[in-house]
Each structure stands twice: as structure tokens, then as C-alpha cells.
Amino acid sequence: MVQAYNFLASWQLFPEKCDFQSGIPPKSGNYKIESADNGHALSISINWVSMDNEAYYTQYKIVPDGKSHLFENVELADEAQASIENSSTLLFKFYKNGQVILEVKHEIMPNGYLKLTQQGYDKDNKPFVNIEMYHKQLSVLPYASSVAGVAIRPTKEGVIKHKALSAMEDQTNMQLDQIRQQIELLARQAQEIRKRKELSMMIYEAKLSFKPQIGHIYHLYEKNDGQHILSLVAPQEWGGSGPFKQFVSSVRLLADHTWVEVN
């Protein structure tokens, strides 16, 4: 079970990254893998909602020892087999009348996403491949959900849980988005302040032959010796950088005595 550690999490579905050849396309879903029976089995919890807003929920256990075991959901399969191929690959196989009717391959991708590839046969006995993509949830939910190919049916408990989950997700996602926007705004403001500080330090170390006035625009030049000088004369008035090595920037003095670059 040590190698299964990477899979033990609550995973949230990326509906836009999925590819379904069979079944009901999901609108949202979660897929939770937990250790069970003192580490001898895996507990799979599934909860998802269709495009028609119908909620589904189911749960089952599977033993990842590479051997076939009786499966509790007889509607889907008589037996199930699970094997841990390596630290990033987990394989489930479901049997009916001795034949593999569904294979679910779990893969941890290099970007940390969980990819589920389901291969099986639909009700018309035609082969299909469904691909689902998940990302690991940062918070641990009391249960999890997904659109895994295991046969699941809508239940009253699933509907109630899904409504509560949807409301919680909507509220927390909105709050997290607001915080993210605030963080991005603060980051931009911090960057602007840092730029003003660096520019101000350069100007206050430059040669000044007059007292700058708040709100006025001045022009910063670099001299041939690498020092800077603040001038009242703009580059166009010089016809270039004038007697200096190069023009650096036009700047304005703000009320807090920092300087800001102007076009």
C-alpha cells in the first residue's frame, strides 16, 4: 500500500479536459481514494452531477493485491481485481462471467493531475474509451465524488449531499476567487511601489541643481561617468540626450516624495 500513497486523496474533476465515448457527460464530480481495512484495501467514493443536474453517489472497496475478489456491486461485476503497477499507475479490472467488462487505469501525470482511462463495453456491447482528468483538492471533504465508470445510481442521500457540496463549493470558490484577486492586486501594488522606490533611490542619488516641486515633471539622464542628473530640459528640447550619455526617463514627484515614471 506504500506505492498507493500518491493516489490517496480527494480529486476534483476537470469536465473540460475529459473525453467521453460512452455514458452521461458530467458537469462536475469528485473521486476519493482512501485506505481501508487497516491498509489492506482501497475505499473508492464517487459523487457527481450530470448536465441535467441529476446527482449520483456510490462507494465500494477493492483490494490492490493483483488477485480477483468478489465484488460487492453485483450489478456491475462478479469479481474485481486491483494492482499497483508502480508509484504512478493503479489498475482496476472488473469481471462478469469470467470476462473483463471494464478496466480503469489511474495515472499520476507529471503535472500532478490524476488521469483515469476507462475501457469497456456499452449496453450494445460496443467497445468504448472514456478519459477523465482530475486535480487534487486542497481541502479534505467528508466524502468524494467522480464520474468513474463504475455503475452508480441516483439516491436521495446523494442528491442531498450534492446540493450541500455544490452550495459549499460555490461559496468557497467565490471567496477564494475574491482573495486571489485581492492578492493579485496587492502584488501589482507592491511591484509598483518597489519600482517607485528603486527609481526614487536613483533620483535622490543623482545630482540636483534645483528643488523639485511636487506634481512637476522632470527628466533623468545618465552622464558619461555613470552618474545620474535630474534636469528641467526634456530630450526633445535637447534634440536627443543633449550633453549626457543617455536619457533614462521622464519622472514626476509625488506627494509622498517618491518618484514615478511618466510617458
Rank of each mutant, 00 (worst) to 15 (best):
V63T: 14
S35E: 06
Y5A: 03
H69I: 04
N86H: 09
Y121K: 11
S28G: 14
M51A: 04
Q59I: 09
E54W: 04
Q12V: 09
I62P: 00
E103D: 08
Y57L: 13
D19S: 07
L102P: 02
K17T: 01
S83A: 12
Q21M: 10
L8P: 02
F94V: 02
I101W: 02
D78R: 07
D37L: 11
Q118N: 14
D122R: 15
Q99F: 15
Y57E: 10
K96C: 06
W11T: 03
S83W: 00
A41T: 05
N86R: 11
G112R: 07
F94H: 06
T117W: 03
K93N: 09
N97P: 07
D78F: 15
S68Q: 13
V63A: 04
I46Y: 02
A36W: 00
I84N: 00
K67L: 14
K67T: 06
D37P: 03
N30I: 14
Q3P: 01
I108F: 12
Y113C: 06
Y60F: 15
H106L: 05
A4S: 07
M51L: 15
H69P: 03
D122K: 15
L42P: 00
N6W: 06
N38V: 12
S22Q: 09
K17C: 00
G39A: 09
G66C: 14
A80K: 04
F71C: 03
S28Y: 13
N38D: 09
E79K: 13
E72Y: 15
D37V: 13
N111Q: 14
G29C: 10
D52L: 15
Q99G: 02
G23K: 03
G98V: 10
L116N: 01
Y5S: 08
N6D: 01
Y31W: 12
S35Y: 15
F20V: 06
G98W: 05
Y121R: 12
A36S: 14
E79W: 14
S45K: 08
G112H: 12
Y95Q: 14
N111D: 15
L116Y: 00
K17F: 08
A41F: 14
D65K: 10
P15W: 01
N73P: 04
G23V: 03
E107Y: 02
P15T: 03
E34N: 12
A77Y: 05
Y113R: 07
V104S: 02
A36E: 10
D124G: 13
Y113V: 05
Q81C: 15
S50H: 08
I108E: 10
N73W: 04
Y57C: 08
